[in-house]
Design a protein around this nucleic acid. Structure first.
Length: 256
DNA sequence: ATGGCTACGATCCGTAGA
């Protein structure tokens, strides 16, 4: 099973790029973030025609997440149970014995801001939710835009970013709390090219300078990490015309 | 030089992203 995550930054704008990428990369499961549309505006017909079932948790203008799969999506749930939130950031589904949780974690805007406080509260709720999911589903994958660069090697210029949102100590502690549940950062299960990132600012020719951050991740439970044969970032869509500012990340899971 | 794009939904600028 090839499982991917991609923050598309508007599903309506990015549909042509998404369809091209699905045809090229042939993923079995895809977690999408920042749809920026309600479910009614989601291009379900085009994706079904491409062979993908869709589970959508949409929102107008902001946020919005979806899971695509070439096999049936079962036990679909939206949001974090018990965490009151207007923002549509989580959807989960079971695909061929694998529990898939798609997350669009808050940006946080600036350390100390209201949005930053919300980000930390949200991560605490996510941790508790994933603990419960793990209890019921030993084969768990959590894929999405985490808006946290876990270590300095995930940051193009650690000095410039020091203490900033996405790398601050409380955010990295929130990230480590997810690992302490027993989840593995799939990317780090393998030798990787240095300076591999998943997001580059649209401005300042950041992509050309590879001035990026690795903030999109696929976490795997122990049972799935054992089955993980590869984990990569696919920069190709970021090179295309009118790209998302994020690149897809993928894992390959051996049959279990 | 603290900006520089891009998307959205409102209008022809403000909010948000990261």
């Amino acid at each position: 099973m090839k499982l991917a995550t991609w923050n598309v930054n508007s599903i309506k704008v990015r549909l042509p790029q998404l369809l091209a990428w699905l045809a090229a990369a042939q993923p079995d499961v895809v977690c999408l973030q920042e749809l920026k549309t309600e479910a009614a505006g989601f291009p379900r017909a085009a994706l079904e025609a491409a062979g993908y079932a869709c589970a959508v948790n949409g929102q107008k203008t902001y946020n919005g997440v979806a899971i695509l799969a070439r096999a049936p999506l079962a036990y679909v749930t939206a949001d974090i149970p018990g965490f009151a939130d207007e923002q549509r950031r989580v959807i989960a589904a079971t695909v061929q014995e694998v529990r898939v949780v798609c997350v669009y974690c808050p940006n946080g805007q600036a350390v100390g801001s209201d949005k930053y406080d919300y980000k930390l509260r949200w991560f605490a709720a996510l941790r508790d939710y994933l603990q419960a999911e793990l209890n019921g589903h030993p084969r768990l994958a959590v894929a999405g835009d985490f808006n946290v660069a876990p270590e300095d090697r995930d940051v193009h210029d650690p000095k410039a970013w020091e203490g900033q949102v996405h790398v601050s100590a409380p955010e990295r502690a929130a990230w480590r709390a997810l690992l302490e549940l027993g989840l593995k950062d799939s990317f780090r299960l393998f030798q990787q090219p240095e300076k591999t990132y998943t997001w580059w600012d649209y401005r300042m020719m950041a992509f050309r300078r590879n001035a990026g951050l690795r903030i999109d991740h696929i976490l795997l439970s122990a049972a799935l990490a054992e089955r993980c044969a590869a984990a990569i970032v696919d920069k190709e869509p970021r090179r295309q015309e009118r790209p998302s500012d994020h690149a897809p990340a993928l894992v390959e899971l051996r049959a279990g």
